[in-house]
Amino acid sequence: MIDQLKARLNLKAVLRNVELLPEIDDLSRELIKDWEISIRLSIWRDTNILLNFHNGRCTFLADTIEKGTVSLFFCSAAHLNNMMENNASPLPLSGFTRLGFLKTEFSKLTSRLEYFLKPPSDVVQDDRHKMINLSLALSTAVFAIPELLQLDPVSRRIAPQLSAGTLQLSVLPEGPYAYVIYDGKGGAKAFTGKAARPEALLTFRNPEIAQLLVDGTLDSFGAVAKGDIQLRGKIPLIDHTNVILDQIPKYLQ
């Protein structure tokens, strides 16, 4: 169960950021501008994702029947997790002629993603760097929620208590933004951007406050009292979501 959830989080929350990264990072955008390739990663008897690079953009699909130009297969969730930790290689099913591309060009993009998600301690982050880091962290967090609700024991106990509704997460003054739509049946869908009509708002006064929360170094109740974090609307949605988000470090370091 742990391996399965970890693998789903790696695919659907972490690697999903490959779609977002070129939109917010110039170097990544430059890297993919001429790519015409789709890469499918699938785990035997479990889930799959497809990263489709076309016209300088990346689109992400999950649990799709679409085939990729390159198809990479993992025997198990543990196999995929080992690859994410650079301890294993996938089994190529198709696209053998593009394997070189994966090892050179695509790995540059994933390295760039890792650079932002796990910044080297000796790198001094400028504001732009911090904003990319925060955008990816927020995206990872919200896209983790649907997976956690399915497989994490604590989140599964929370799930029946979640009423239907949309929670908007916003960092002032200019983003990033993400939102989660709970279906009231224990499931959820996550998105980046602004929801049309959210029923609950979790708003950070500025990126610094949001980053402190992401880093786990913020007293969130104190921040609420000071107005650094603003809660509005259906606050139980926020309350339950916070418990779910607190489970992420059990699976992703």
Binding site: D219, F221, A225, Q230, I235, D239
Partner: peptide, 21 residues
């Protein structure tokens, strides 16, 4: 908040008070 978890905890905590200000 420097000496008490949450500053004010439980049902008096700021969490359900919206807008907190």
């Amino acid at each position: 908040v420097k000496v008490i978890p949450c500053g004010v905890y439980g049902h008096f905590s700021p969490a359900p008070y919206a807008p907190v200000e």
